[in-house]
Design a protein around this nucleic acid. Sequence first.
DNA 1: CTCGGAGCCTGTAAGC
DNA 2: TGCTTACAGGCTCCGA
Length: 283
Amino acid sequence: MPELPEVETVRRGLAPAMEGQVITLARVNRPDLRWPFPDNMAQRLTGARVLGLRRRSKYILADLDRGESLLIHLGMSGRMLVSGDPLGQFVHDHPAPEKHDHVVLDMANGARITFNDPRRFGAMDLLPTATAEAHPLLASIGPEPLGNGFSESHLVAALKGRSMPIKSALLDQKIVAGLGNIYVCETLYRGRIHPARRVTKIAQRRIAALVPIIRQVLSEAIEAGGSSLKDFRQADGELGYFQHSFDVYGREGAPCKTPGCTDHVRRIVQSGRSSFYCPSCQR
DNA sequence: CTCGGAGCCTGTAAGC
DNA sequence: TGCTTACAGGCTCCGA
């Protein structure tokens, strides 16, 4: 599920249930996800008021009124379920607990936030709000692709002297933060660059052209997530799930969508990850 | 420092 | 039907 657009969608879905609200009860059902939870996490969350929800890359930060922030990462399979909101925005009743419900937050407005993560690649931590950016998971990641720090000159400079395939480069969170396998594939399709092409062998102007494409791809995905989120919330309150429509991702063997192209989408494996591309359009 | 591969976990779908 | 294998949207760690 979670690359930048999905995480932003989850953040927006959580905001009305959490912002300004006191966590009346936090329950933690196991000692760890990917890493151990911080000491006394449930106690440190219980009674705290959520001042606001921020996103940095694929991380959500819930700033609390005690000088601490809750860091949330959804990993590969993490989900946030919102239920029990008295205004009827979310599922009215709390659903039965499910396997892999690891952390449950009951809010003063009656909402319940349930973090469910079968594969447990997700993470939660508590850190001082004032130095949040210094957290080990955040300290060395690159600029936000939708922010001012991400520019053509940044990308060109960050890739200078690198020899890796462009696919690997765009997945590197130190170069730009928030892209994952899906949106890198979609970006390279729109940029007409073969995923295995080495960075060294790509003209500067083609690298620079990726910047507005990345912005466009992510913006469109956020837009789609936001709109379908509303519908889905009426259904059962789950956040961050929506049907995507991709040009190449997951379309192995299907016809290329470029007008006039008669070729078909191909899948290769790079560093253990699938890359989807059109061999005719992407060079 | 750079890069590629293994590994972490569980669930699901495809193949025999 | 049952068993086995491949694969899944992230990230860190290790060795070459």
